[in-house]
Design a protein around this nucleic acid. Structure first.
Lengths: 146, 146
DNA sequence: GCTAAGTAGTTGCACTTGCATGGACATTCC
DNA sequence: GGAATGTCCATGCAAGTGCAACTACTTAGC
């Protein structure tokens, strides 16, 4: 039951603050443009990349809570971007495909999403620092065990 | 309108994922113990440190949205942890003080909050790396201009 | 093959959040 | 000193989230 070092606390507050600012900026930018929020893009991209995905695989890929994902999918299906198709090997689940509109939406979102990322992160930190940052953060992206 | 470098994108995804995992772990830990969420601690600490604070100063200190803070304060007042006292210099606002219970709650939360931080961050990264991380994140904790 | 246990996904309910707006006081400018 | 503008905080409403069940199918054990 070790207490955190002061440097740990500093990193903690900055990590949360930086991530919050960055994601807020991104979400706000897309919203202002009348586009869906960033999560939608992540879902569209993940599905496009693998052709078709089951909810549980999306869940693993995105780290979203299961119930949150369930409803997110609902919304995206209602919006006409995704399509549920019955799954042959497992009747409990289904496969998610992109519709034409889904594909178009992903393509339309990317440049604006990318620009927001550049503004929020790329333009605020040197590229070498970015590389180091990514390396340092790597272990923190794995599930927390204890 | 520059596009992000690939290293920027990697840092982006890791930053968001790491922060999400860490804060989720923390919130879940406190919740499991029957304690209020981390934001409450941050509010209690900020007020305790300065003796009394106005909502707008809290807002600046914590980076919370104005309406979110307004309701958060409401809940904490209802829970008996905070107390609103009229503000002499500005009748629009008020000063926030900790109640005895508020002070006790902050003290009670700290060891468990701290342990969660240690588990989520300190124990997963070398201390030198933590220092570097904090330094790299510093520019990202400032408000995004453009 | 039948039961028990596990996994995939959904949903009711209470709570929180986001956005837009509103009301109250303060400040500025004439 | 009075209107216009700005700042501080609250709130209605719609939408999202978290937790805890719940249904439906699958797998394991026997």
């Amino acid at each position: 039951m070790a207490m955190p070092a002061s440097t740990t606390l500093l990193a903690w507050t900055r990590l949360l603050r930086a991530a919050d600012l960055a994601s807020q900026h991104c979400a706000a930018t897309l919203r202002t443009l009348g586009l869906p929020p960033p999560e939608w893009y992540d879902v569209l991209l993940a599905i496009e990349r693998s052709g078709a995905l089951r909810p549980r695989d999306l869940q693993a890929a995105l780290g979203t809570e299961q119930y949150a994902l369930s409803r997110l999918i609902d919304r995206m299906v209602k919006a006409g971007l995704l399509q549920r198709v019955p799954c042959a090997e497992d009747a409990r689940g289904y496969l998610l495909h992109l519709t034409i509109e889904g594909r178009a939406m992903r393509a339309a979102m990317w440049p604006l999403y990318a620009e927001a990322i550049e503004t929020a992160l790329g333009a605020r930190i040197a590229e070498e620092d970015c590389t180091v940052l990514a390396r340092l953060l790597a272990p923190l992206t794995e599930p927390i065990s204890a």
